[in-house]
């Protein structure tokens, strides 16, 4: 058990190192940092001096080690564009993206899991077929189209919800949250739904497929043969067994939601990391892009680690060893 966790952590460290290397390569080899930082009027001598000062003439391995070391110390460097520390810029954007992602995830779970269970238990029902058809249409339409449609209907035509920004936010410590004001929630709703729709469909179809598989298994049939009450049969026996594989995919998807919220954030002008990344690309702000890469990879690794631990928590076969 402890061994298992340690093993996963060591693996995570290697993943992070690989990503850090990518980020570093981006920083070091996409264009010359010195030309990016200086204007045309800087003399060649000054450029050389700067290059020497910044350690860009040092051996490659040494530079990478210094880069990684700085990252570990929390020093992420400065943006070319705004001259602000990158750490601050990212930190100010993280709450927006995380809140958006988490709310999208919760929406997709709250709707996706019950819908999956329902469609699995009543595979021939009219409602089941309707749900399956609608969600199929849902995934076939690209995210940005869904976003624009939602804006058009609820923002423009009905005028119920705001179409951009975060609405009213509250500052809690260093965390700027929109979860504590009505206004914030109103602003959050449309982007969260947009982002959650795809994941919702996936969760639902996965739960449905797994649930149907589990319902055919011997232990469910045996439980039926013993007359175990239907509610317990469906929700205690079947659903728990369904969740084991579903959690993996949800975890991976959540990483994806955080990483690829770019489209949604851009449609709704949501001031999160995705929008920051888009702006950075436009201005070739390589330090920000590199750090964004590392932060996203960190989320992925973290989520996967949590998923592995959840596995162990749910499945006693991983937790308790055979004694017989």
């Amino acid at each position: 058990m402890v061994y298992f966790i340690l093993k996963r952590m060591v693996q995570s460290v290697f993943v992070m190192l690989a990503v850090a290397f990518l980020a570093f390569s981006l920083f070091r080899f996409v264009g010359d940092p010195i030309t990016q930082m200086t204007g045309v009027e800087t003399s060649v001598e000054d450029q050389e001096r700067l290059r020497e000062e910044l350690g860009l003439n040092d051996p490659f391995v040494y530079q990478f080690m210094r880069f990684t070391g700085d990252m570990l110390k929390g020093d992420f460097g400065f943006s070319y564009r705004t001259r602000q520390p990158v750490a601050e810029m990212i930190a100010s954007r993280i709450p927006a993206t995380l809140e958006l992602g988490v709310v999208a995830l919760i929406i997709s779970l709250l709707v996706g899991v019950p819908a999956g269970v329902y469609t699995a238990l009543k595979p021939r029902g009219v409602l089941t077929q309707t749900i399956l058809m609608t969600t199929l249409v849902g995934v076939s339409i690209p995210t940005f189209v869904i976003g624009i449609m939602l804006i058009f209907i609820f923002g423009v035509q009905l005028g119920w919800l705001p179409t951009f920004g975060r609405g009213g936010t509250v500052q809690i410590g260093g965390w700027e949250s929109s979860l504590f004001t009505i206004d914030g929630w109103r602003a959050l709703l449309l982007p969260a739904i947009t982002l959650g729709v795809y994941q919702l469909t996936l969760t639902m179809r996965l739960v449905r497929a797994e649930m149907m598989e589990v319902m055919r298994s011997d232990y469910i049939r045996f439980a039926m043969a013993r007359g175990v009450p239907t509610a317990s049969l469906h929700y205690r026996h079947a659903l728990a067994n369904t969740m084991v594989p579903v959690i993996t995919i949800i975890g991976l998807q959540f990483g994806g939601v955080i990483a690829f919220s770019i489209v949604t954030e851009s449609v709704f002008q949501w001031p999160g990391m995705g929008l920051l990344f888009l702006e950075s690309i436009r201005f070739v702000d390589i330090p920000v892009m590199g750090v964004y890469l590392v932060v996203i990879a960190f989320f992925f690794v973290l989520v996967n680690l949590v998923v592995d631990l959840l596995y162990v928590a749910i499945d006693p076969r991983l937790r308790i060893r055979d004694v017989s």
């Binding site: 011997d218 232990y219 049939r221 045996f222 013993r226 026996h237 006693p316």
Partner: peptide
Amino acid sequence: RGDRISMIFQDPQTSLNPLM
């Protein structure tokens, strides 16, 4: 079912709920 008629399955590896 259970009350008056019950059943035993072939494979004891798969006929018990592994999570309970």
